[in-house]
Design a protein around this nucleic acid. Sequence first.
DNA 1: TCTTGAGTCTGTAGTTCCTACAGGGTTTAT
DNA 2: ATAAACCCTGTAGGAACTACAGACTCAAGA
Lengths: 135, 135
Amino acid sequence: MRSQKRDFTIGALSKYSGVNIETIRYYEKIEIMPSPPRSQGGYRLYSESHRRRLSFIRRSRELGFSLEEIRGLLTLVDDKSYTCAQVENITVNHLNTTRRKIADLQKLEAVLDGMVSKCHGGHVPDCPVIDALSL
Amino acid sequence: MRSQKRDFTIGALSKYSGVNIETIRYYEKIEIMPSPPRSQGGYRLYSESHRRRLSFIRRSRELGFSLEEIRGLLTLVDDKSYTCAQVENITVNHLNTTRRKIADLQKLEAVLDGMVSKCHGGHVPDCPVIDALSL
DNA sequence: TCTTGAGTCTGTAGTTCCTACAGGGTTTAT
DNA sequence: ATAAACCCTGTAGGAACTACAGACTCAAGA
């Protein structure tokens, strides 16, 4: 019993992944998602691995990575012929921007949290949100 | 001695904030940045508060917030006539997405960090990066 | 089996958020 | 005063979607 792959259509994939149907087809065209097999009538048939890849892309986009950055990471998944130095290069780079983003978001979190607390106190606080991310 | 505001041109603002000159003018057109005063010859003259606002926008964009989301936060800064309930609404919302993003980035960080360690060990690791953000 | 309605197909055009000129005026340093 | 470096407006292009239009497919019920 390997992986029974119950295929699903593009509409179902869209629901499971939170990505628009049109965007899914767009991702296939620019080759960041693979072309799936088709039914006799020409319908795209997806499986679990597609759903996982697509969810990864969506969430990475929400974190502010460009499709080219994501494509770079995904080649690490797809292409098994990298040297350690190449992998480390891509990975360390991504790790740096990831850590910077975490730090920024935590600053933002602190400011927003402070505002909510003050608001609970009853009077409208002024909003120092710019101070969090203005260098 | 209040704030001595040494004005600077759009090119300088671009350097200080890391935002392209064209993008700065675009932000003015869509009214997410205010129209600054002009010199006799028509040059835009910016001061420190512009720089801070613009840096905030740039870094928020890098964190994956849309201009509309950022505009929402900035109205909290600009408009002093909100009720506490309104402020809390906007803020709590933003706080939720912010925390979700932090959590996602931390998962990604762990995976990338793991890859780098394995790479230091000498042999090319396979890349479980999708697992970090595929639900 | 035939029909009907929801779902999918390709292709093209529109939106958002920039980015890159073109052709001209302004500043500043020599 | 004059050239280099900068800025102006306007328009056109690119990335990453998003929204049709018109035709085909599929599942389910009469």
